[in-house]
Amino acid sequence: MKSVMIVGVGGQGTLLASRVLGRVMLDAGYDVKVSEVHGMSQRGGSVVTYVRWGDKVESPVINEGEADVLLAFEQLEAARFLPYLKKDGVVVTNTQQIDPMPVITGAAVYPEKLIEKLEEKGVRLTALDALSLAKEAGSQKAVNVVLIGAMASSLDIPEALWIEAIEKTVPPKFLEMNKRAFELGFHA
């Protein structure tokens, strides 16, 4: 069984990412479970979705030490949820920084050099500036698809299945832009 944990800030599009990943694994013939977050925590808070697949998946949630891949849409969230990663797991993180409210109000400080600190922990890390790549693809809203691309390159699933899943989940008029975003992430 494989477990991917997708973390970010409410509004960044982590739900879409988990749905695309779930769709890909369903099409690949696996038993799949996806756990989503709705309601209050979506409003700019720390959000978590879980995707698990294999011959048989029991629990839809991922606990500490269980994630094969931690896909973070924001670097503070990568650091927050690092304990959920398996010892030999992979972290794929966006280098974007979004200040949480306690940092904005001055009650807390955004930690410095988080990417370096993650590397020091000996985890396999891919850090990319997904926001710039999304803009390059045509829209800053495609950050989530860039990150799906970056994560896809760490999973052993044919690229065609990913493209097919994106075709099924995004509106047709944004399809070409999203395909570009996926490619940019995949090869980042």
């Binding site: 800030v9 409410g10 209050m40 925590s41 979506q42 409003r43 700019g44 808070g45 720390s46 500490e64 030490g65 269980e66 503070l76 969230e77 650091a79 927050r80 690092l82 304990p83 959920y84 990663l85 398996k86 010892k87 949480p100 409210m101 306690p102 940092v103 807390a108 400080v109 955004y110 930690p111 988080l114 600190k117 993650l118 922990k121 000996g122 985890v123």
Partner: peptide, 15 residues
């Protein structure tokens, strides 16, 4: 299994 973490205080991110 054990897990790893960063020895740094991570500010909370409330909604």
């Amino acid at each position: 299994d054990e897990s790893v973490s960063i020895e740094e205080s991570i500010p909370v991110r409330p909604p």
